[in-house]
Write a protein that binds this DNA or RNA. Structure first.
Lengths: 185, 185
DNA sequence: CTATTCCTTTGACATAAATCAAAAAGCAAA
DNA sequence: TTTGCTTTTTGATTTATGTCAAAGGAATAG
């Protein structure tokens, strides 16, 4: 899904508004395995994924990677708290596939927020939607068995499971790779 | 914390704006154990807690209550997805203490959102903050031991643990009451 | 003050999932 | 193809936490 369609699906921007907003984004092709932000950095860029797939993750002691979220086509990708609150990112962001993304800087985003009421509205809608999804995951993780969690994931990210290493999915679901492998069978 | 102070701490409303916004809220004293919304209802009211404490929870099979979140003084309390997206609430909301709250209807809230750019901004800020907190909890639940989760909770809700039945806290943390009791010792 | 109810702790046992270890399967480069 | 590297599966064992059951404390209403 491209950015323009996505924006219009959320808020009825006028053609002029849409044009200015789009002009603040930059379209880029970025190869897989690119790290978009490191843990500890302050995020200055928000990404919209037109095509591709990314994830956020962090390192536990012993350097184990814990996947925190997946970002697919048609979604914004960012270390949200870092980008919006200017705090050091708790996560790494990386692309798992060659991707086509739109990027925007914090400054331009702020400018759009202050210029267009509708952008704040968009921000609010996107935030609430994300909040709902995170809460859903939380419920799945908190009170379901490993098997039910796997099923939750198939609903939330139906297109993921053949595209992405098992270990990433397992850690996203809060279980070991071995457990996930056994469940799948 | 009262509503006026809270609003000003987030966004620099003018005195006139502030007055109109406040006039859309209604101040109420509500006794403990009041149910604010039932699972399945569509939430029409947003609450701001000036004083008191509430929680959201849902029922698992066998009627077990699972606490989903606690809402303390100075916070908005709502079944957020239901209120903002007009979907049936996944949760019950109840007050755990006699509380002083400000209420506002969905209609007035929408009116404020469309009238004041700054209200959308407020909505965005509050949503992002909530998002960050939920993500924190998610990380705690997902990858920490029962003991570490308990410590996370002491940080997030320092004033809670002597005010609220152990069972509520345990289910919030995704563990049984017995486990929490053993950890505490 | 006493009784009823609710809340918390403790104990014994069961179990889902983690860990450790190694084999098998896939995949990429030469 | 062969070689090497990564990912997935399988097996044996351990462990944290859940479940079930009951007793002890604390709070509330009459």
């Amino acid at each position: 899904m491209n950015l323009s369609d996505f924006l219009l699906s959320q808020v009825p921007f006028s053609p002029e508004e849409l044009e200015e907003i789009l002009s603040c984004f930059e379209k880029k092709e970025i190869p897989k395995n690119t790290m978009l932000i490191q843990q500890g950095e302050i995020s200055r860029t928000l990404y919209f994924i037109e095509n591709g797939m990314g994830r956020s993750y962090y390192l536990k002691k012993q350097g184990k990677e814990i996947t925190q979220w997946f970002f697919g086509s048609g979604k914004f990708m960012a270390s949200a708290d870092s980008f919006f609150q200017k705090t050091p990112s708790l996560y790494y962001l990386e692309l798992l596939e060659d991707s086509i993304v739109y990027t925007i800087s914090r400054e331009k985003m702020d400018m759009l927020f202050s210029k267009y009421h509708k952008m704040d509205q968009l921000g609010r809608l996107v935030s609430i939607e994300m909040l709902t999804k995170v809460v859903n995951k939380l419920n799945a993780i908190q009170f379901q068995t490993a098997k039910e969690r796997y099923e939750y994931m198939l609903e939330e990210f139906p297109d993921i499971y053949h595209r992405i290493p098992l270990g990433h999915i397992a850690s996203y679901l809060g279980m070991t790779q071995e457990t996930l492998s056994r469940i799948r069978r």
